[in-house]
Amino acid sequence: MAGSTDTTVDGRRAGISWSRIRRYGYDGLTYLVYALAIAFFLFPVLWVLSLSLRTEGAVYTSLELIPSDPSLGSYREVLDSGILGWMGNTLFVAVLSVTGILVVTTPAAYGFSRFRFRGRRTLLLAVLGFQMISPIVIVLPLYEIMRTLGLTESHAGLVLLYIGLQIPFSLWLLKGYFDTIPTELDKAARIDGCNRLQTLRYVLLRPVMPGIAVVAIFNFVLTWSEFVMAYTMLSSGGEGLYTLSMGIYVFDNQLATQWTNVAAAAVVGIVPIIVFFVALQRYFVRGLTEGAVKG
């Protein structure tokens, strides 16, 4: 394909061909759109970063992105508050939720992808049906149930909620990923002496890893920043139970005027996500772009 515009044999190389201009035109346009999109998403983040580095007075008076008089004061203040504890809570909840989600959905997705059992389609559609329900709609009944079970004001309860709420989407995503792996691999494994679980463990798990990484990252980011469920389940407990998003909300309330502190807390909250993403992005990108595992 590329050869048809670059190295033509019909003598048009000498001049600049229209197709070339068109191609560069398209390329330029693509980059322009990318640049706009990136700016659109990056600007708020940079603005928060900028706010967090200002002195309180400069929040309302200056519009410059790079503060002329940067200060780490708000970070000191934020770190002295309970934020590290809240981060610990959030990390605990996020890691347990992701682990739980993967433990449930990996075998389930394998089963839905590989076995043809009675009611398979119905079950899959039912699972999808649950996904259609917005968690906000059912947050009150959920709260009631959790309270009856004595699971409010506890991280375990929140983790269970997250797992339950995220299973449908994760299951579908992972099943789709299993579907791209040729079933001949399973057959070969069975002839080589694997039972079904060993087939999953020794043969399919590695090829399906990018899919698992996508599910893990997606759910980690989601649970890390989730607010409504966390607030509903935990706010009646002490501040020691809070997750990061709740903590930032508290900041917002208590120190309503202290925008620099809110911004600094937000930045502190974003950093682990970025670290996590950068660490796993190789898998993430592969999981999203690469379809089947060929041969």
Binding site: E184, D192, Y202, G295
Partner: peptide, 25 residues
């Protein structure tokens, strides 16, 4: 059995592929 699309285990080396059945059985 030998399959049309080879069905080699993608994460194992050729040696690992040969050895796997012996390991399991």
């Amino acid at each position: 059995m030998v399959f049309q699309n080879y069905a080699l285990y993608p994460h194992m080396t050729a040696a690992g592929n040969l050895e796997f059945g012996l390991k399991m059985t």
